[in-house]
């Protein structure tokens, strides 16, 4: 990670900005889903398998998120990119725990940055309240462009902070094998708990719960057969 070429870092930064924007502000085309963001980051870093391993881990956590109304949630996209930067080039069972921990911290920071962005958007709207009340289309356009620009900046900064954290981690933090493997198992277990807990919560007590149970049985059979 610490010896990444400048071009790769810039590409990751651009990718992180697009992914951060995609979460809420522009498109919501789901490139911000961790397994998408992770796979592409892995390809950019020359280790698509590491990208997939990290991406799927964060996807488990993301499945717990229901972004309804004014819900607050972590930003897993740029976090996944930072985590892939830590994990790329290392055996997954040794790197997933540490990279996942860095990623989770970046995701929490990303969630906080989304709150800040929303407050900044509100302040910008208050500043142009008179123009909005007068029905000026130009005020609406400026507010829209400002909102998108602020989120682009937020996403770029978050990705940069994540990549810096990844670089520092790869340079200075080295865990012994048992700790690294234990950390990987702990994070994978927490991810599985998040996905399953979210699915149970969404299912309630209706037919969806029965279908969830049927899916779990089929998944278990397929896992054993493989």
């Amino acid at each position: 990670m610490s010896s990444l070429p400048l071009m790769t870092l810039v590409t990751l930064l651009v990718w992180g900005t697009l992914v951060g924007l995609d979460l809420v502000t522009v498109a919501q085309s789901m490139i911000a889903r961790p397994f998408v963001a992770g796979t592409v980051s892995g390809i950019l870093l020359g280790d698509p398998v590491a990208g997939l391993r990290v991406g799927v881990l964060f996807e488990l956590f993301a499945l717990d998120v229901l972004p309804v109304g004014a819900a607050r949630y972590p930003d897993y996209g740029p976090a996944t990119i930072a985590a892939v930067a830590v994990a790329a080039g290392s055996p997954w069972e040794l790197s997933l725990g540490l990279s996942g921990t860095i990623g989770l911290l970046v995701a929490v920071l990303g969630g906080w940055s989304l709150q800040l962005l929303r407050r900044m958007n509100a302040r910008a709207i208050q500043r142009r309240a008179a123009a909005l009340a007068a029905g000026e289309s130009s005020a609406i356009r400026l507010l829209q462009y400002g909102g998108v620009a602020r989120d682009a900046l937020r996403s770029a900064l978050l990705t940069a902070v994540g990549l810096a954290a990844a670089s520092l981690t790869a340079t200075f933090l080295h865990l012994d094998r048992p700790t690294a493997v234990t950390l990987t198992v702990v994070l994978v277990s927490c991810g599985l708990a998040a996905a399953l807990g979210g699915a149970i919560r969404s299912a309630g007590r209706g037919p969806r719960l029965v279908w969830l149970g049927a899916g779990l049985v089929l998944g278990l059979i397929l896992a054993i057969l493989r």
């Binding site: 599985l192 996905a195 969404s202 037919p207 279908w211 969830l212 779990l216 089929l218 998944g219």
Partner: peptide, 15 residues
């Protein structure tokens, strides 16, 4: 909704 429950159910043990 049921399709979502089923798909996530299949995925979790495999992952």
């Amino acid at each position: 909704g049921p399709a979502a429950g089923f798909a996530v159910g299949v995925a979790v043990p495999l992952v």
